[in-house]
């Protein structure tokens, strides 16, 4: 159980400021995902929370207690690293028990009990005697998670834990982590990823970062439906939101409008925009139709099922009512 409060947190490496003043509350027991493009500072922010990196300025507290100066272990955090970072010379059991054996006066029996409980949770009980090099990538990732669980942390940190796994395993492990969150309702989890699908599927709330600053914090649906900026609107959702500006947006009384592909329909006539189909992608369940309406980039329309529109066809498109996002010149939403 820990509520994490960040107050104007800054971090510089030499002359370069990477985190430029982040204030954020992470609720107790919440699954918070930091997402953003590479170089936005999300990993650094996680490392500041972990205590592996020094905070340059600002105040961080766990449950009201300032932790700026505390070591990671005193903060009660556990972390799952991108490369798993298992101790290569220790068995799975030793890997998971290592942190507990360092705590003075922990009875062996209790350590054993906790390791076995975590191992059962992750179904790795059969591998406890093996060395990391004898395990597959997915199994190593489970051990890394198990090691973190064993420590029974107040705060559970994940640093892009799925990026070393192949696509199929990534989905499976994602579900695993979601279940883990269900069963550890008391533990606050902070998760860093550059993959917005991971963010959308796992998060209670998402924090979008850009250039060392927070762009927006909210539930996945809030970010999807009410993005606070063009950046967030463009970052969340797949396919990317279409932005149309200039003359083509005049009808909406805004410099720029944004519409998601799934909120556009192709009509035989009376569309808001019109143009030629220049490309279409058929995914089976749905399809993306790229239409050149005269904006900078082609507009992508998402349709259910296989598309009936061929390349070269002239189509009219219109947004669904209430699904148009209007943005001012600074990229802020007009509501």
């Amino acid at each position: 159980m820990a509520k994490i409060e960040l107050k104007d947190i800054r971090k510089s490496f030499g002359a370069v400021e990477v985190i430029k003043g982040v204030s954020l509350d992470i609720r107790s027991g919440e699954f918070m995902v930091f997402v953003g493009p590479s170089g936005c500072g999300k990993s650094t922010l996680l490392r500041l929370i972990s205590g592996l990196e020094d905070i340059t300025a600002g105040e961080m507290s766990f449950d009201g207690q300032v932790v700026n100066a505390l070591t990671p272990s005193k903060r009660g955090i556990a972390m799952v690293f991108q490369s798993y970072a298992l101790y290569p010379h220790m068995t799975v059991y030793e890997n998971m028990a290592f942190g507990l054996t360092l705590e003075k006066g922990k009875p062996k029996e209790e350590i054993k009990k906790r390791v076995h409980r975590a191992a059962e949770m992750l179904q790795i009980s059969d591998y406890l005697d093996r060395l990391p090099k004898q395990l597959s990538g997915g199994q190593r990732q489970r051990v890394a998670i198990g090691r973190a669980i064993t420590r029974d942390p107040r705060v559970f940190l994940f640093d892009e834990p799925l990026s070393n796994l192949d696509a199929a395993l990534r989905v499976a492990t994602r579900i695993e982590i979601a279940k883990l969150h269900e069963s550890m309702r008391d533990t606050t989890m902070v998760y860093v990823t550059h993959d917005q699908v991971e963010a959308m599927t796992l998060a209670d709330r998402i924090c979008v970062l850009r250039d060392g600053l927070v762009e927006q914090v909210g539930t996945p649906m809030e970010l999807y439906e009410k993005p606070d900026s063009m950046f967030v609107a463009g970052f969340i959702g797949s396919p990317k939101m279409n932005f149309i500006s200039g003359k083509l947006a005049e009808g909406f009384n805004a410099p720029t409008v944004g519409v998601r592909g799934e909120h556009l329909v192709i009509k035989p006539s009376d569309g808001v925009w019109s143009g030629e189909v220049i490309h279409s992608e058929n995914l089976g369940s749905d399809s993306y139709i790229y239409v050149n309406v005269g904006s900078e980039e082609p507009v992508v329309v998402r349709e259910d099922g296989a598309t009936k529109h061929a390349v070269g066809e002239h189509v009219e498109i219109a947004p669904i009512d209430g699904r148009v996002h209007r943005f001012d010149k600074a990229g802020k939403p007009i509501r």
């Binding site: 104007d8 430029k20 905070i55 300025a57 600002g58 105040e59 100066a69 505390l70 927070v214």
Partner: peptide, 16 residues
């Protein structure tokens, strides 16, 4: 997002 204060140091001590 806050404006950067004139002195960017709110008692940031060396961590333990």
């Amino acid at each position: 997002t806050m404006v950067r204060p004139a002195v960017a140091d709110s008692g940031a001590k060396r961590s333990e």
